[in-house]
Design a protein around this nucleic acid. Structure first.
Lengths: 232, 232
DNA sequence: TAAACACCTAGCCAAATGGCTAGGTGGGCG
DNA sequence: CGCCCACCTAGCCATTTGGCTAGGTGTTTA
């Protein structure tokens, strides 16, 4: 079952279905102290859950999950300078620790990232700026129950995306990202070619492919979209 | 006095200097519930301060300050779709309510925004992702005391910036921002000209000026910088 | 093994861009 | 009153770009 949390769909979330004594054990991964404290407060006070571990780096997430085996991992994919690594982390956790459900709590809302995260094993995706206090606890409970949760705004975004393009799961390759990052620095194709030791043609090739994947037609737009997706 | 919070300079913050009974009254403006709860927890539990009001929109900030007259306003400049409005808000608060000190707590760290905020009356600038739990309370106390506080990373950034370019306070005009936002959408100069009802020459003119101010040489770089500064 | 994929290269051409000079207007401020 | 500033326009020209077609390699995977 997939739960959308747009509008007033909150009423359909069945509360008290689970054994009331089984405290949900949560782990929080976010580089931001304020956010960690906030999540802890909300979860422990209002939902009777226990935050058993925290992490601020990609490495610490693995260690924490391994050591504490939480029921749910709330994670911000951006734990360093590379969101892509957060996605890989999702995959690894989902793979090695199937008992731990993953709820992504992101700063930015990008269709591409959402789809990628879900594809790689995340059980839910919510946006920090959109989520209401009570929704957080409900979201955690839902993913623990095995549901897929899409927070406010996320659901409609994905639905819209799925309708428009067939694949959508088209993610940028490493090389394409290299080129995009260079473009963001204001380099010309020639300069980029020189920087990454390939011909100018190759740079253009990667850029063309990236354009199609991001549905952009100008390098400025590519940079904008990549930036909005937290990719650079 | 300006306090930098890089490295281990925390030891030089004089604690207990103020009357121990005068509880600091704080107002928090941030669209993100988690952040609001987090700040409240940190401040009330560890520093004995009181969060007397919260706000999630630009309008509500003014109302809250007017009604509660907090000692310190902790604000995220990005309360909507336009960070520029947050800057104007700073100016207005500093102007009309000099009794309320302003501590900006930003998501992103951009030299331009920092300088602009301070120029318009903010008393401190900290970055959410960099700040440590204890620094938040100390920062609030410091701005209340009339000091200017620059959080970890912010101080060095500004110092570096001040040394490099003479002016730096060069901020983008409204029109330049219009054009940059259009560029980010992937429009050509011709399309932009049509969209904002000016000639193509004018679009190029604004872009050239923006290039100089942002020290960029290609539109992709302009978009990147503006994006990093939270301007689009 | 064949397909799929990331990656690399070449050339073509119209269109867009960057970098400049050289003008114009109206509003605000010392 | 000048002066600065945001804003608007024009033209020039070398360079860059977008979009295309048409190849090539090596690795992974069904």
């Amino acid at each position: 079952m997939v739960r959308f949390m747009d509008k007033d769909s909150r009423s359909d979330v069945p509360l008290g279905r689970r054994s009331p004594m089984a405290t949900t054990r949560v782990m929080v991964a976010d580089r931001n102290v304020i956010t960690r404290v906030g999540i802890r407060s909300i979860l422990e006070r209002n939902s009777g859950m226990a935050v058993v571990a925290e992490a601020t780096t990609y490495e610490a997430v693995i260690d924490g999950v391994d050591e504490h085996g939480p029921d749910v991992l709330i994670i911000d994919l951006d734990l360093g300078d590379d969101t892509t690594r957060g996605l890989k982390l999702c995959e690894e956790i989902a793979d090695r620790y199937p008992g731990t459900k993953i709820l992504v709590l992101a700063n930015t809302l990008s269709e591409m990232i959402v789809v990628e995260a879900l594809r790689r094993g995340a059980n839910g995706y919510m946006c920090k700026d959109e989520v209401k206090a009570d929704e957080l606890g409900k979201g955690v409970k839902a993913v623990q129950d095995g549901d897929t949760v899409l927070g406010r705004g996320v659901g409609s975004l994905v639905a819209r995306g799925l309708g428009s393009t067939r694949g959508v799961h088209e993610h940028l390759t490493d090389r394409e990202l290299d080129v995009i990052r260079a473009v963001a620095k204001g380099l010309s194709n020639k300069q980029i070619a020189h920087e990454i030791y390939v011909s100018e043609s190759t740079v253009k090739f990667h850029l063309q492919n990236a354009s199609k994947k991001l549905n952009a037609h100008r390098r400025a737009e590519i940079v904008h979209r990549a930036s909005a997706a937290g990719l650079l």
